[in-house]
Simulated assay, not measured.
Amino acid sequence: MNKLFYPRPLQPGDTVALAAPSSPVPAANLEAAVKSVKLLGLDPVVMPSCREHHGYMAGTDAQRAADLNEAFSRKDIAGIFCLRGGFGAMRLLPLLNFNMIRQNPKPLIGYSDITALHTSINKLCGFVTFHGPMPNTDYSRLDDFTLESLKSQLFHPQDVHELQNPQGQELQVLYPVSTNTDSPDAPGISGAPHAPEGNPIITGRLTGGNLSLIAGTLGSPWEIDTKNAILFLEDVGERPYRLDRNFTALALAGKFRDCAGILLGTFTDCEEPPHDDPADSGVIADRTLTLQQIIEEVVLPYKKPTLLNYRAGHMYPQSTLPMGAQISIDPVQKRILLP
């Protein structure tokens, strides 16, 4: 894949769209989203699906896709803020006009279910999108780190030279670069590469997002491309065996084999519940694996430089990520750099 480019940065006074590719929100949250966009000095246009409900989605697939297509095609709209995540963005992929979107690059902001849009637009349209907080959470309530990270990426991306964690949250090195090439391939999975030699800094295109969404598109025309990329993964509310299933699906599809490095976010509320919880009916065994064990058994055998605890996604404070941008991870200094 060729190097992706940044769309034109937003400027104060720009008109931007509020779109709902996934789940709906109550009227109060929509009002908060409008205020959030105005807080950034932008003029919001509320697309019709933001006020629609179709089960657990904000309008029908046709309605939500039409809003996204219109938002990208309109010359008066400079960017698109996704109202929230939830469910439904993946259903829009066959309905989106990617040829038109490619010709009208604009900042797209969102995370979680919006991962489906990030990976497909990056892959098919060639420009950077932004994995960051969505306005229904009310930007006026964001902590300073989260708000400044969002504003920097949207308004001044050329000035961002490092993707930082909030103060007190250190990146953890799970697999540092090594010059040892005598280790065997990943057990049970052929073709796992050896650790790279030389410069410990690994550079690649940033791709990824929500683990469950990425696993859900495998085998489709919109599946993630990890070739020579830095693969970012995070999730929320998934039991360990579900995380194991999705990590394993990516392994079987060659996504860890193909990538240059791995950046793991936080996996919020992904612990096994107490087995004596009377409300729990989903226990499949008396024991569980921890997230650390799953990563060690499924991901680390590929011997790719791997960092953990990057604060982006389902927690606050969180960093806004430029999906598709060239980044470098330094497992020695525990830093994530942009050229």
Rank of each mutant, 00 (worst) to 15 (best):
W222C: 07
D14A: 09
H156L: 09
I77R: 05
H118L: 04
T15C: 14
L231F: 10
I294G: 05
S319H: 12
N97C: 04
F81Q: 02
P273L: 00
G313R: 12
P322A: 01
F256Q: 04
P200T: 13
T288W: 09
L96V: 12
G198I: 03
L252P: 02
P196V: 06
A260E: 03
A20H: 04
V25M: 08
Q292F: 13
S73V: 07
N246H: 13
L18K: 15
L243R: 14
L68R: 08
I284Q: 10
P105C: 02
H118F: 02
Y6I: 07
T146C: 02
M1P: 06
A249T: 03
S178W: 07
H54R: 04
E170N: 09
L307H: 06
I284V: 14
N104S: 13
S23N: 03
G86K: 08
V332I: 15
R242P: 15
Y139E: 10
A312C: 15
L30D: 05
S152I: 12
A32Y: 08
C270D: 11
L4Q: 01
G86P: 02
W222M: 07
A312V: 08
S152A: 15
L40C: 10
P176C: 01
D159M: 13
E170D: 15
P105E: 01
P193D: 06
E297F: 12
P187M: 12
I80H: 10
L68K: 04
R242T: 15
G208F: 07
N309P: 03
R102T: 05
P12W: 07
P196Y: 06
A33S: 14
N69I: 00
Q172M: 11
G209C: 09
P21M: 13
G254T: 10
L42C: 09
A71D: 13
G191M: 09
A253N: 12
P274R: 06
D277E: 01
P176R: 03
D277W: 06
T137W: 09
D76I: 10
D14E: 05
L321F: 09
A249G: 04
A249P: 03
A215S: 14
G79A: 05
R8A: 14
R257F: 04
P322W: 02
H54I: 00
V236F: 11
L250W: 05
A27E: 15
N165E: 06
R257K: 14
V332M: 09
F256G: 02
K151L: 11
Q169M: 11
G86W: 01
R242D: 15
G198W: 01
L218K: 08
P196C: 05
L171G: 00
Q169V: 07
P133Y: 07
P24V: 06
G79L: 06
L96N: 09
E272P: 05
L92K: 00
R102S: 04
Q292L: 15
A192Q: 01
A66M: 08
A33F: 10
G237R: 08
G313Q: 04
E234D: 13
I189Y: 06
G41K: 01
T248P: 07
D185P: 12
G198V: 04
